[in-house]
């Protein structure tokens, strides 16, 4: 383990928070900037803005997957999926709170959501560690990180479908038509799947992060399909970029698997036995 260079948790945390928030805020700022720059630029920026939200959420997926990896390594006893689901559960509660509570101060929404998620995650982590007594040293920190990543994922993908992160807008375009369920579930799978698929004695962070990139990208593609319904052209761009990123990351993951495997052999077809 020690001879393999790994990305530090803090590095990934900064990547997730900064990348995630940047993407989310770009969905709001790009159209505003466009209005200052003239009509043609405005239309262009307004079309590509929602894509940034999905890209930001992808950064959070990578961060969240690594946090899941660090905590689930200890063996939760309930399977890795449970932690992905609690991440989204905490994330969605915090996201709705953050976006709704700020009212006219729209820009503060995602940050309030992030802070709320961290607090809820910290409390659940503290209780898991000290009341339920799970005896996992990284529990509190990882639960906080997972909740925060969950809320960025929810807001990011919701912004990609709704165009921006104003709560009224998200209610109309994400909640009323049920897209939030897809965001919730596919987002949860994106976070939990990488470690669930890679766990084991030969698990390597690099391979897991590439897989996290690919699950994030496929989520982006699915969100793109939903966004095509709500936003039209922006959705198509999200869908296409999602598929391209998925192909890139999946190829990288594939290469890593080939690299790490002792040998790769074809088993051929199952031989037909004679009766």
């Amino acid at each position: 383990m020690s001879d393999i260079k790994e990305r530090a948790p803090n590095q990934l945390m900064i990547f997730g928070i900064v990348g995630g928030l940047l993407g989310i805020y770009l969905t709001y700022i790009l159209p505003l900037a466009g209005e200052q720059l003239g009509e043609k630029v405005a239309i262009f920026l307004k079309t590509i803005a929602p894509v940034a939200g999905a890209l930001g959420a992808m950064c959070a997926v990578v961060w969240g997957a690594d946090a899941v990896r660090r905590v689930a390594k200890y063996g939760l006893g309930t399977g890795v999926p449970s932690i992905g689901q609690i991440a989204m559960g905490m994330g969605i509660v915090a996201a709705m709170f953050g976006l709704a509570i700020v009212k006219t101060l729209v820009l503060a929404g995602p940050i309030v959501a992030l802070i709320t998620a961290s607090i809820i995650g910290f409390i659940i982590g503290w209780f898991a560690q000290n009341v339920i007594k799970m005896k996992i040293p990284v529990m509190i920190r990882c639960m906080t990180e997972i909740a925060a990543a969950g809320t960025i994922i929810i807001i990011g993908f919701s912004a990609a479908v709704a165009g921006n992160f104003e709560f009224a807008n998200i209610i109309k375009l994400v909640f009323d038509n049920g897209v939030i369920l897809a965001v919730f579930w596919v987002g949860a799978v994106a976070v939990l799947h990488p470690f669930n698929a890679c766990l084991g004695p030969d698990e390597k962070q690099k391979r897991l992060l590439y897989l996290a990139g690919s699950t994030g990208a496929i989520t982006m593609a699915i969100v793109g399909i939903a966004a095509t319904m709500t936003l039209g052209a922006s959705g198509v761009i999200t869908l296409i970029i999602g598929i391209i990123l998925w192909l890139i990351f999946y190829k990288k993951f594939w290469d890593e698997v080939y690299n790490d495997a002792a040998s790769v052999v074809g088993t051929g077809l199952i031989p037909k036995t004679e009766a």
Binding site: T78, G89, I92
Partner: peptide, 21 residues
């Protein structure tokens, strides 16, 4: 819709906590 989604969020949190227990 909003109440349903929020309920789902609280539900998942409360389903996972005892499963750790």
């Amino acid at each position: 819709a909003v109440a349903g989604v929020f309920t789902m969020g609280v539900f998942y949190v409360n389903a996972v906590i005892p499963s750790y227990g």
